[in-house]
């Protein structure tokens, strides 16, 4: 099964992190990717820019309405994600636990796989 590991973090601490801290975090992500590759589980993933760079689009009264900023203004923001292949939720949670040593909160969501037509 395919799962998305959605990473939520307190953005402020990342925005204010010094160079050494950032390097440590990136190194930890490098090790995590390496673990996924060893298990043949890596299916993609990205880091997202800070939420103050986001633009949110909704439709109001039939008109698209743009707002500056993320959909929800919360202290923790979605900062990136991995897509992983796992045999079941237990394996996906094992990956998530690893990742939780680097990022604050990991939400594990199964990916809906549509059968090829």
């Amino acid at each position: 099964m395919k799962y998305a590991l959605l990473m939520y973090s307190v953005e402020k601490s990342w925005a204010e992190a010094d160079e050494a801290t950032r390097e440590q975090v990136y190194a930890a992500h490098g090790r995590f990717s390496e673990l996924l590759r060893e298990r043949d589980a890596e299916r993609g993933g990205e880091e997202l820019a800070l939420s103050n760079t986001a633009t949110t689009v909704r439709v109001r009264d039939g008109e698209p309405l743009l707002t500056d900023g993320p959909y929800a203004e919360t202290a923790e923001q979605l900062g990136g994600f991995y897509l992983v292949e796992a045999r079941d939720l237990d394996e996906a949670l094992e990956f998530a636990r690893q990742l939780a040593t680097v990022e604050d909160i990991i939400e594990v969501r199964p990916v809906v796989e549509h059968p090829a037509a």
């Binding site: 796992a86 237990d90 594990v108």
Partner: peptide
């Protein structure tokens, strides 16, 4: 079913 909670005995570390 959807989240893939397995129907098996947990691994030793779990």
């Amino acid at each position: 079913r959807t989240a893939g909670i397995p129907l098996r005995f947990p691994s030793p570390q779990d």
